[in-house]
């Protein structure tokens, strides 16, 4: 019975919530395969306390992957230590989160382990030939269904926010095992990647996080000047804030503190109004917890409409003007 490995997402020595989503995906794989045993791997310089707590909380078996070099994330160290461990286990599946860390080390791990590698998985299914993995492609307008080649293991990175964490069976306690693995840098005695510092681009996205209503703009607003209309529109609502999709920040139209999505803020307002946002999976991951979603877009096929409560197919500027007129008469 081959094992299904979950590689925990660690940050500053703390296990991250994304780990429970990956564990839920692992449970789904086990159920669909009708076999397999799940093990959670915790890479850390001091994994024992976290491993014990995790085994207690989840009821699953945990391997603490211990190395002094695993204190902070380093792709070379992660790949080498994980490879050494994984080789001895020979699992059928290796799962991790599609985060800045996961997508950094997982593809390389798949190469050294001669495994298939499927990124950004958003659903797991099966047909008569085995398990199938779905991933969002073409600007989130399609899901591509992929299967690994026969007889090889697979490394999966899972889209954050998609798999709902399970209620764990913590009646029983999982077993804890510590594996100490030394990292040895290639020939020379130095690491190839040196960590200098952590920088913070902006510490103030509190405005977005606390807002009850968020009016967001995407590339579909056309030009930078049209952001004024978005701000004016947002003023129709009390306790509102303006959000944007990533391209607007990349183009320098507005500051990072307004960015909603996987690399920006995750928000959960009572109302989210998406203006000219096509709806990439990265953006959706940041606003899926909004209570009510209204989308305005002149493209009737924009993916955002599949994830909206109310859909308005119109050009942004004329629509906002029409709306302001209605507000003025009330």
């Amino acid at each position: 019975m081959k094992q299904i490995l979950v590689i925990a997402e660690m940050l500053d020595g703390v296990i991250q919530p994304a780990t429970w989503e990956i564990t839920a995906a692992a449970a789904k794989i086990k159920k669909l395969k009708e076999s397999g045993q799940i093990k959670i791997i915790i890479p850390s310089d001091d994994p024992l306390p976290i491993a014990k707590e995790t085994a207690k909380q989840t009821g699953m078996d945990v391997i603490g992957l211990k190395s002094n070099d695993l204190k902070d994330y380093d792709s070379d160290v992660y790949k080498q230590c994980l490879f050494k461990l994984v080789k001895t286990i020979d699992p059928s599946h290796i799962l991790t989160a599609h985060t800045s860390q996961g997508r950094d080390f997982a593809p390389g791990l798949a190469i050294s382990f001669n495994a298939a590698s499927i990124a950004c998985v958003n659903e797991i299914k099966k047909d008569d030939k085995g398990l199938l993995y779905s991933r969002s492609v073409l600007g989130n307008t399609k899901n591509m269904i992929v299967r690994p080649a026969e007889g090889i293991p697979v490394v999966l990175t899972l889209m954050p926010g998609v798999f709902q964490p399970d209620n764990f069976n913590n009646q029983k306690k999982g077993r804890v095992e510590i594996c100490e693995i030394a990292f040895d840098p290639d020939c020379s005695n130095t690491r190839r990647i040196r960590h200098e510092k952590i920088l913070q681009k902006s510490c103030e996205n509190k405005t977005l996080k606390g807002a009850k209503i968020i009016v967001s703009a995407g590339r579909g607003i056309g030009k930078k000047e049209n952001l004024d209309a978005i701000f004016k529109f947002a003023q129709c609502f009390s306790s509102s804030a303006v959000g944007v999709s990533r391209p607007l920040v990349d183009m320098g139209w507005i500051g990072y503190e307004h960015q909603v999505g996987i690399t920006g803020a995750a928000v959960s307002p009572r109302l989210y109004i998406a203006c000219g946002i096509s709806g990439s999976s990265q953006h959706l991951a940041g606003m899926k917890d909004a209570r009510f979603v209204v989308s305005i877009n002149n493209n009737p096929d924009a993916p955002i409409f599949r994830h909206s409560d109310l859909c308005i197919v119109e050009d942004i500027d004329p629509f906002l003007q029409a709306f302001l007129k209605v507000v003025q008469t009330k």
Binding site: K142, I145, P148, A149, F305, S308, D309
Partner: peptide
């Protein structure tokens, strides 16, 4: 190492009233 199976339309997650 990976095999393309098919393309599917993503599922709706909300009502999508037009």
């Amino acid at each position: 190492r990976e095999i393309f199976v098919s393309m599917e339309d993503p599922q709706k997650t909300r009502a999508g009233h037009l």
